[in-house]
Simulated scan of single mutants.
Amino acid sequence: MTTGAMPGRYDVDGKVALITGAAQGIGRELADVLHARGASVVLVDIDGAGVAAAATALGPRALPLAADVADREAMRQVITDAVDHFGGLNVVVANAGVVPRPATLRTLDGRDFDRVIDINLTGVFNTVRPALDHVVTARGHVVVVSSCAAFAPGMAGAPYMISKAGVEQLGRALRVELSPFGASAGVAYFGIVDTAMTHDTLDGDDLGRALDDLLPWPLNRRITAVQAAQSVADGIERRSPRTIAPATGWSAYALLRGAVNTVLDTRLTRDARVHDLVRAVEARVRS
């Protein structure tokens, strides 16, 4: 059994890092950051052409692998291929995720619910589970990407919040379970990150913009994908149990969420604008 205290800093130079959802957005930027810090990177995405282009841009220390994180057998093969190619695996970042089309739980199609859970939550398990023996051997680090949505209200997008709350608990359990073996895990939380997924959800139509307008500070603060990626990369090098970006506002919310959410939930259930938004979402789904 491998035991012993983990070093205070985890330098990624010379390490091998695997990132899912790496064809664009946060995953793509994180591959750039870790590669620039000396890591070899395995870029995984369902978009094979996208990860191939990203790996080509980075050079020989980048390996593109096309796979759907919801496919358990495919993800086992991804881990095998990554280890065969680079000789080991030190860091895993389970980043792939999707958002559902706006709908209430009453109007949500069950297939849409399953898709979000399969990718955002089960996909994290499918990514992490076959990699853990390698991470333990390397005394490495795992990051699971949750969201500040894990502790924010989820009207019209509950499957996303549900999935990210589950990812948070997976990451917390994993950190404790890896600690006897000199390996570590952390949970990454983001507010609103300026990505194509965000633009499609909040900027694409009147309903999305109405939802964005209802978000109070700090829920409405946006950061770039580069800022999000740097937050994760810095957290890996500190073996942080959690990273939050943007930290201002959200860190306090995370700490005080038990009390804040009681007040916020009450406020939202009494807000006529929220009532109008819910009715509009349901009307559109049923039209």
Rank of each mutant, 00 (worst) to 15 (best):
T2C: 09
R9F: 15
V12E: 02
L18S: 09
I19E: 01
G21E: 00
I26W: 05
G27P: 05
G27D: 04
R28C: 13
D32T: 15
A39R: 03
D45P: 04
I46A: 15
I46P: 08
G48K: 01
G50F: 05
A53M: 05
A53Y: 03
T56C: 08
L58D: 03
P60H: 03
A62Y: 11
A62T: 07
A67Y: 04
A67T: 08
A67Q: 05
D68V: 07
D71F: 13
D71A: 10
T80Q: 13
A82H: 04
H85F: 14
G87H: 02
L89Q: 06
V91S: 07
V93M: 04
V93C: 13
G97T: 03
R101Y: 09
L105Q: 11
L105W: 13
F113A: 14
F113S: 07
D114G: 06
D118N: 14
D118C: 08
N126I: 00
V128Y: 12
L132V: 15
H134I: 05
H141Y: 14
V144F: 10
S147Y: 05
P153H: 05
G154K: 00
G157P: 00
A165P: 10
V167W: 00
E168H: 14
E168A: 13
Q169R: 14
Q169G: 14
G171E: 01
G171H: 10
S179A: 15
S179H: 10
A185I: 02
A188N: 01
Y189Q: 07
F190E: 06
I192W: 10
V193D: 06
D194M: 00
L202W: 14
D203T: 07
D203M: 10
D206N: 04
L207P: 03
A210P: 02
L211R: 12
L215S: 08
N220V: 11
T224W: 00
A225M: 04
Q230H: 15
Q230K: 13
A233I: 03
I236R: 00
E237Y: 06
R239M: 08
S240A: 15
S240H: 11
I244A: 06
S251F: 10
A259I: 12
N261V: 12
L264D: 12
R273H: 13
V274A: 13
D276G: 14
D276Y: 04
L277A: 08
A280M: 01
E282V: 09
E282S: 11
R284I: 06
S287M: 05
